[in-house]
């Protein structure tokens, strides 16, 4: 049984891979490629963050900081020290991770709302440093003219999607491993999990750090793609947007936030000329998802599927059941 499952899994994975590999052959429009690449980068970042938000229930309002740390680090290494990309990208990810690790220990003394605002406070500190450390970050100007990783967007596309698949696979394995199960146990009842011998703090720290590593990597990809690093790209709004994507896609489902990234990016393009209404609709969708579609898009589809099969299975009313 399990063998068949994994074979089928492999097959569907292959299908996805083939689709992704073939796509650029049909797309010659730089705009489509650009937003697919941007969506891919966001998808990578929210994939990591979902491990924190969806699996542990801790909402971070500050991941723009790690996104930005990764972006600036890679930009600075390449522009000021002439580092090659294969050096700057890993260092960007690692530095974001190290800082995330250092911040994670004290941060997990906080719970719920305090945790969210605590992470926000740190992100604001980081943003103020971006804005003011002129000799290194270029201050309000940011760093303009960050070299591109690849001469064309198609290569970018392959690179980003290769990493999306690799990172997705790793995180998926992690979530299915005992670590993931322990995380879910923690989310449901932290005290109980503790009492059965799970080292919760270490677990949470690990997840937080991992999400920062991934965010840092994503930030580096983004900065090289758009060609500049600006403090305005890594603000509270960016952090909120990451959370919005996760919630709308379906927190704790991993695949959900990935869809969320694509969904919101497409929605924003559809509504590009509606301006105020666009953000209004974001707000409304967010409220409706939380209230009526626990589990976001993916949760909704799943629920639809299950309710078609058999009625009555009651769903947990909370997407990200909070710590309190």
């Amino acid at each position: 049984m399990s063998k068949i499952t994994s074979n089928k899994k492999l097959l569907s994975l292959l299908i996805v891979l083939v689709i992704v590999l073939l796509l650029p052959l049909f797309i010659n429009n730089a705009f489509y490629l650009q937003i697919l690449v941007v969506a891919g980068i966001w998808a990578i970042v929210v994939l990591g963050l979902d491990l924190l938000v969806g699996y542990t229930g801790y909402v971070s309002f500050g991941h723009a900081a790690y996104f930005g740390i990764g972006g600036y680090t890679s930009a600075i290494l390449v522009m000021k020290f002439g580092a090659p990309f294969w050096v700057s990208l890993p260092i960007a990810a690692i530095l974001a991770g190290v800082i995330g690790y250092l911040i994670s220990k004290p941060s997990f003394r906080l719970t719920g709302t305090y945790f969210a605002i605590g992470t926000l406070a740190f992100a604001e500190i980081v943003n103020i440093i971006f804005t003011n450390w002129e000799s290194v970050t270029g201050g309000v100007y940011g760093l303009i003219g960050v070299p591109a990783l690849f001469p064309n967007l198609k290569l970018y596309f392959y690179f980003v999607y290769a990493f999306l698949i690799i990172i997705g696979f790793i995180i998926y394995r992690l979530a299915a491993s005992p670590v993931g199960k322990a995380l879910i146990a923690t989310k449901e009842n932290e005290n109980l999990a503790q009492s059965i011998g799970i080292d919760i703090l270490r677990m949470k720290q690990f997840v937080f750090t991992l999400s920062c590593v991934i965010a840092g990597f994503g930030g580096a990809l983004l900065v090289h793609l758009v060609g500049f690093a600006s403090p305005l790209s890594f603000t509270v709004n960016t952090s909120l947007e990451l959370i919005v994507i996760i919630i709308i896609g379906g927190a704790g489902t991993l695949i959900g936030p990935v869809f969320g990234a694509f969904f919101l990016l497409i929605l924003s393009q559809y509504l590009a000329t509606f301006t105020e209404l666009r953000l209004m609709i974001y707000g409304l969708v967010l409220i409706l998802v939380i209230k009526y579609f626990p589990g976001g898009i993916v949760g909704g589809i799943k629920r639809l599927a299950t309710s078609m099969k058999k009625k009555g299975r009651k769903l947990d009313g909370t997407i990200t059941s909070a710590k309190s």
């Binding site: 969210a116 959370i243 409220i287 939380i290 909370t318 059941s321």
Partner: peptide
């Protein structure tokens, strides 16, 4: 019946 985090996010939506 929702958790604290859900409330926080709903207020962001609002």
């Amino acid at each position: 019946n929702h958790g604290e985090a859900d409330f926080l996010i709903v207020t962001v939506g609002l």
